[in-house]
Design a protein around this nucleic acid. Structure first.
Lengths: 251, 251
DNA sequence: CGATCTGTTGAATGGTATCAATCGCGGTGG
DNA sequence: CCACCGCGATTGATACCATTCAACAGATCG
């Protein structure tokens, strides 16, 4: 396991998904960062110091490194603070599949609560940083602060809905529809974070996308090319511009 | 919305998935039922009366009826008490997909917490009954009783893992593998409930299975037929016997 | 007992995977 | 500085698995 390290903001702020947080050199998350990124929406100001005491540190992960691995004992939840990560689940025969894409602000690690061990791995798609939230401490705070309990439940419920939706993508949509749905999802989430709906740097490889969407990397590539020829998008490798949002919605 | 009605145990006990609960005529869940079915594992005996006050009633749903519908305001969680249900999610274009199968003891309704409205529907696959757990009351009780909070978190986390696993089934497995994985999953869950691993009455139609597994009902039927010819199972319509468990695991 | 729903099976089509070749880019080291 | 290497991405040709369309059989229910 890696130990928490200081966050280098000079590199963080070059990242595509870093939220507009004032540069700081401290390891501890700033309150203003937490307000956006972590769990406290709906809390009163009185609650913030207590929460700050729980979210004790940030940790930076380099591209390709894991925040946690399937099988690791579960101690902490995390919140992506900058950058982006994928969650990956492995079948016993070795095949593995990308089960999620996490952007800045997204929570990570709920899968460990059930058994006390993580069942999937979280891997950084680019140099990223995550807030570390010790679960036991958070649990205790939830019992004192109803708003935090609410937020915790809502975050897990949101994740459940997200996964149900992805099940529908995988089970019911054609390859074209899957890719379109994925691009629209990323576009929307980018917009929610204050970035452009229309242009983003998608750090996943074609293989990651294929794995997430239940198809081969070749089919992903072909589909993107076809979308480009149809004037729906402009894809230069990982840099994706959405040209015809409505068009994408209708295929 | 239907109102809670008395549970008819005479019909319940004919159901395949009814747990061995002593017959009772009261609408209120008995403690012994809750101990198995609902949320209280890990609670002290002192906590039970308080929980009993929250889980105020049961409701019976006939085959094909819904416990809740996508779009309904969210007020209650539910626990399947007898019978079995499917959860269904709809795409905006009308296509819909089965996202889950719930057997006796499984929780229902977490999807509503996030927005205050349900995003999927829960439909009884046979005449069934569910415990009704008012969410607000449960939330308050969670703040008083740490063990209940724990259980709540674990149940949601379990559900997350279940959905991730299903994403992997849908994204990575062939039709044969999907059907085999599904049969093994149902077999295991049946076993956990004290029923036979080897023989069960699967109340889903071939179409439901196909929807859940991301394939057509014809392919499900063909696959089951092929499994039968290979001596892996014996399927007479909805009654399924698993003959070669290991064989199923290896395709 | 007819009507409708569910399940099975067959034949033909088509979408996606597979296999393979090539290209482009970034990093590395001569 | 540039050649080389490796990885990621693109594109093509072919094969195959699952869908689609269709007919029919069996169950269930009013």
């Amino acid at each position: 396991m890696l130990t928490p390290t200081a966050v280098s903001h000079s590199t963080l702020h070059r990242s595509n998904h870093t939220l507009p947080v004032p540069p700081r050199t401290a390891t501890r998350c700033s309150v203003c960062a937490m307000r956006h990124l972590c769990m406290p929406q709906g809390l009163t100001l009185d609650d913030l110091p207590r929460l700050e005491a729980v979210i004790c540190s940030a940790r930076s992960v380099r591209r390709g490194e894991t925040v946690y691995r399937a099988g690791d004992p579960f101690d902490n939840l995390y919140v992506a603070r900058s950058g982006s990560l994928k969650t990956v689940m492995a079948h016993r025969d070795g095949r593995q599949q990308v089960t999620g894409l996490r952007l800045a602000g997204d929570p990570l690690g709920f899968d460990g609560i059930s058994t006390g061990f993580h069942t999937c791995s979280a891997i950084a798609l680019e140099d990223s940083s995550v807030c570390i939230i010790p679960y036991q401490a958070l649990k205790h705070l939830c019992r004192e602060t109803g708003a935090l309990q609410d937020r915790m439940h809502r975050l897990m419920s949101e994740q459940l809905i997200r996964e149900s939706s992805q099940m529908m993508v995988l089970g019911s949509l054609s390859a074209d529809e899957r890719v379109a749905a994925f691009l629209l999802d990323v576009s929307e989430r980018n917009g929610q974070r204050g970035y452009s709906h229309a242009e983003f740097n998608l750090r996943m490889t074609r293989e990651d996308m294929g794995s997430y969407l239940g198809m081969t990397l070749e089919t992903v590539s072909r589909t993107l090319s076809r979308f480009q020829k149809r004037g729906l998008i402009d894809a230069q490798g990982k840099l994706i511009k959405i040209i015809d949002l409505e068009g994408l919605r209708h295929v």
